[in-house]
């Protein structure tokens, strides 16, 4: 990723040596703003993170840290936090899946069925962003409160029992402080990131292609799976990435809606950086998370067959 910073977009063919010097440099000048941006906001922070992941773990915030190529941090961090890592990927994955199903229906309805309500519905999708992320998440504590009607209904229709069996809640018939609440919170918070790209790509689907599918003996259902859905794949890929990546690193939902058994990797990294002051482990854990996500994304994008995105 970083290599693009150093490659000038101009030909440096040897035969052009006679060209005026100014013109040869134009390309470099043009990429300068981009390169500076990349350096400031990606390369330096990234190096800093990698450096701290290799700090001598014997250092501390006050006595100072020294980079000693201490690769062992990675082994220690992984062994100690593999539980949280796995949980983060699982929760983020489930939340992404739920977002995809809910978001697809929503985006489809907006793109094809909303008519003149289209713009209003889009505004409503973004509306939650007008309040703070923290407040929105906290309000779910009220909605899902143990004595609240949501839990009452969930118990009445035996949803809580079902969730218990699949392990998304505990045996206490509650929803808060369970994996379910954390996944629900993630789903809620990241849904707009799924809906918007899905809408953008569904909206681009030529209605005439769907007609053509119908003309060629595809029932509306078959037409959807053979034409509409494949054509919306760029949106599906973009949406799942925009949802999964931040969800995997999120710590607010687990902190506010979860319990001690639902902590995600974001909580660990946050605690290591701020409370414990253990920069080495925190750095190593961050890099591990990043590598896992990049690998997962690359594998996913390759399978989804939309290489153009990367």
């Amino acid at each position: 990723m970083t290599s693009t910073a150093g490659v000038p977009p101009v030909s440096t063919d040897d035969t052009t040596a006679a060209k005026p010097r100014g013109r040869k440099l134009t390309g470099y000048w043009l990429i300068l703003p981009g390169a500076v941006w990349l350096l400031l906001f990606f390369v330096i922070p990234f190096y800093s993170l990698v450096a701290s992941s290799l700090f001598d773990p014997k250092g501390s915030v006050l006595t100072g840290y020294e980079m000693t190529w201490h690769v062992g941090n990675y082994v220690d961090a992984f062994n100690q936090y593999k539980g949280q890592l796995g949980r983060s990927l699982l929760y983020a994955g489930l939340a992404t899946l739920t977002c995809l199903v809910v978001g697809y229906v929503l985006a489809y309805a907006i793109a094809f069925k909303a008519g003149r309500w289209k713009n209003l519905m889009l505004v409503l999708v973004i509306a939650p962003f007008f309040t703070s992320f923290l407040l929105r998440t906290l309000s779910w504590k009220l909605i899902l409160a143990d004595d609240g009607w949501v839990v009452g209904v969930a118990q009445a229709i035996h949803l809580t029992d079902v969730l218990n069996i699949i392990g998304l809640t505990t045996t206490d018939d509650r929803l808060l402080a369970t994996p379910f609440a954390v996944i629900a919170g993630l789903t809620y918070n990241f849904l707009p990131f799924m809906v918007l790209p899905l809408y953008a790509s569904l909206e681009k689907v030529d209605i005439r292609l769907i007609e053509a599918a119908g003309d060629l003996y595809a029932s509306p259902m078959r037409g959807f799976f053979k034409v509409t859905f494949p054509l919306s794949l760029p949106g599906v890929v973009a949406g799942t990435l925009l949802t999964f990546i931040p969800a995997a690193g999120d710590y607010v939902n687990a902190q506010l809606l979860g319990s001690t058994n639902t902590k995600m990797i974001g909580n660990s990294i946050q605690s290591l950086f701020t409370t414990q002051g253990d920069y080495a482990t925190a750095g190593a854990l961050s890099v591990i998370l990043m590598v896992i996500i990049v690998a997962a994304v690359m594998a996913y994008v390759r399978t989804a067959g939309t290489e153009e995105l990367v």
């Binding site: 292609l209 053509a212 054509l231």
Partner: peptide, 8 residues
């Protein structure tokens, strides 16, 4: 009219 070929 515009062929409506499936681009994928």
């Amino acid at each position: 009219q515009n062929y409506a070929l499936f681009p994928h």
